[in-house]
Design a binder for these strands. Structure first.
Length: 230
DNA sequence: GACCAGGCACATC
DNA sequence: GATGTGCATGGT
C-alpha cells in the first residue's frame, strides 16, 4: 500500500516514513479468514510465535475449520492451544465465538461478513472475551473491513511522540488514526503491521530511538522523550 | 530468573 | 469511573 496524497497530518507522515523504511509487511501470517479469526483470539497479550505453535497443533488435527472446531470439546481445544498461553481462558473465548457463528450464521463466514461493519462490530463485542482489538482484528484481517486495529504498539508509538494525549483510550486513538487516513482496509492492514514492526524494533517498553524511521517527527515535548505511560 | 507479549473480564474501592 | 488482578506459555 503506497502513500496516498489524500492522507493528511502526522498520521499520514508517520505511515509514509514507516513504509519507506520497511516496505510492505505482508501481514498477517494466517492462510484463511477462519485461521485469522482463531489467531485474533490466541494472540491476545501473546507473542505471535506462541500463537503459531497453537495454530500448527490445530492444523495437524484438521481443526482449522469452523465446523470441526465447533464440535471439539473445550477441554480438548484448551490442550491443543496450550502454547499460546491463557489456554483455558482462550478455549472458552473461541468456543463462544464459534457458538455465535453457528447460532447466528449457520457457521458461514460469508454470511457473518455480509453484515455491516458497525453491526458486526457490535455483535462481536457482545461475545465475552472479544474486546475492541480482537473485534477489529477479525473485522480487518478476516473480513477486510476498513477498521483500524489499535494495539499496545500503536499506543506506545503515538503517545511517545505526543501525537495524541497520554490518557487517550482505544477509541480515541482509533478515531484519530482513521480520520487522518483514507478509509481503506489494505492501508489500515499495512499501517498496523508497520506500527508493530517499528514498535518491536524501536518503541518497546524501553525505547531504542537510534535509527528509528520516526525519529525526525519531532513531538512538542522533545524528540522521543518517553511519555509517562505503561 | 526477570521481563515481556497483536487483551479482556471482573473485583474492589 | 478509575485502578488492580488473574489468566499462562515461551523467547530473550
Amino acid at each position: 500500500m503506497r502513500y496516498d496524497a489524500r492522507m493528511s497530518g502526522n498520521v499520514e507522515e508517520a505511515y509514509q516514513r514507516l513504509f519507506a523504511a520497511y516496505g510492505p509487511q505482508h501481514w498477517w501470517p494466517a492462510e484463511t479468514p477462519f485461521e485469522m479469526i482463531v489467531g485474533s483470539v490466541l494472540t491476545q497479550n501473546t507473542h505471535w510465535s506462541n500463537v503459531a505453535k497453537a495454530l500448527e497443533n490445530l492444523r495437524e488435527e484438521g481443526l482449522l475449520d469452523a465446523a470441526a472446531l465447533h464440535r471439539l470439546p473445550a477441554d480438548e481445544l484448551a490442550e491443543l492451544i496450550r502454547p499460546a498461553g491463557y489456554y483455558r481462558l482462550k478455549a472458552g473465548r473461541l468456543k463462544r465465538l464459534l457458538d455465535l457463528l453457528f447460532e447466528r450464521f449457520s457457521g458461514s463466514l460469508d454470511e457473518m461478513f455480509s453484515l455491516s461493519l458497525d453491526d458486526l462490530r457490535e455483535l462481536l463485542l457482545s461475545v465475552n472475551g472479544v474486546g475492541p482489538e480482537t473485534a477489529d482484528s477479525i473485522l480487518l484481517y478476516a473480513g477486510e473491513f476498513p477498521t483500524f486495529v489499535v494495539d499496545t504498539y500503536t499506543h506506545r508509538v503515538f503517545k511517545r511522540h505526543a501525537w495524541i494525549e497520554d490518557d487517550a483510550d482505544y477509541h480515541a486513538l482509533k478515531d484519530h488514526i482513521e480520520s487522518g487516513l483514507e478509509r481503506s482496509a489494505p492501508l489500515f492492514n499495512e499501517y498496523h503491521a508497520l506500527l508493530v514492526k517499528v514498535g518491536k524494533e524501536h518503541c518497546g517498553p524501553k525505547p531504542k530511538c537510534e535509527g528509528c524511521p520516526l525519529q525526525e517527527l519531532l513531538p512538542p515535548r522533545g524528540p522521543h522523550e518517553p511519555a509517562p505511560l505503561d
